[in-house]
Design a protein around this nucleic acid. Structure first.
Ligand code: ZN
Ligand code: ZN
Ligand code: ZN
Ligand code: ZN
Lengths: 134, 134
DNA sequence: CCAATATTGAGAACCATTGTCAAACGCGGC
DNA sequence: GCCGCGTTTGACAATGGTTCTCAATATTGG
């Protein structure tokens, strides 16, 4: 059997720029915002390349992508273990959270109804302490 | 103090057609699919009106809207109590599920981090029994 | 039936995302 | 260092879902 096909990803200036931009914030940002960030850092990367790179990183599990209320994709550099997010609706401040109990629950519910190959999405939104006081 | 402003919603042929279409399926459909369904039922309703009506129903809590993998909005007539969904990735078959434990967990996690005004999204995807055998 | 207000729809406008494809680049071999 | 080749890039066009516009129409209460 053939080993997993590996497309041979190359370390380019552009990919480095995207990675660098991702390291500069810890909330979720749109591809366009990240593109602007890169420009402001002095680098020049095509918007299409930003999209391509973000998608690749998401596939590789290095960034998480979710959708804001308008359906726009927003991205964030994340740890590589399975987790969910607690996101501030006002400033975007994000906390990674884990919930073994929830993981078990989704599996149980699915099994109960005979569903297989389960995956799930779970995000929590609220107002963070900092935004509460202001 | 003035009572809650009530925009005075009128029962029109169009809104009836959308409601009727919604009653005709129990999986999640896109606005365009619902628009097609209405046409096939013999009614004629503008696409913009379908969007407007679906949004209004969603605000009123009579339908649930979520986003598919591509970010498209998909809609479904739902019960009015808080619940989540177990959706077949292949045929779309949907089961409404409730999980008091999960509700408590999200609240606890949020409180633990000082977040307030909590809301959350949670959807489970998998392959339903029918699609498993085929 | 009237006036006031809400609704509709055809099409334009928006805008995030993806596709195109020739030029530029990274890499391994020589 | 130089070649050859597959990979990557980017300017720009194309897509496609969703919203906007605004004049024409429908509903309602009187
Ligand atoms: Zn994450
Ligand atoms: Zn999980
Ligand atoms: Zn529902
Ligand atoms: Zn819930």
């Amino acid at each position: 059997m053939t080993s997993t096909e590996r497309p041979a990803v190359r370390p380019t200036r552009q990919r480095r720029a995207v990675a660098s931009a991702l390291a500069g914030f810890d909330d979720f940002r749109s591809a366009q915002e990240i593109h602007d960030l890169i420009s402001r850092q002095g680098d020049s990367v095509g918007l299409a390349t930003v999209y391509r790179t973000l998608s690749a990183l998401a596939d590789a599990g290095e960034v998480d992508m979710l959708r804001n209320e308008d359906g726009e994709a927003i991205w964030r550099s994340c740890s590589d273990t399975h987790h969910h997010h607690l996101v501030c609706r006002t400033c975007g401040a994000t906390v990674e959270v884990e919930g073994p109990a929830v993981e078990k629950w989704t599996g149980a519910i699915a099994a109960e109804h005979g569903y297989a190959d389960i995956s799930h999405t779970l995000e929590i939104f609220g107002t963070c302490p900092a935004c509460l006081v202001s």
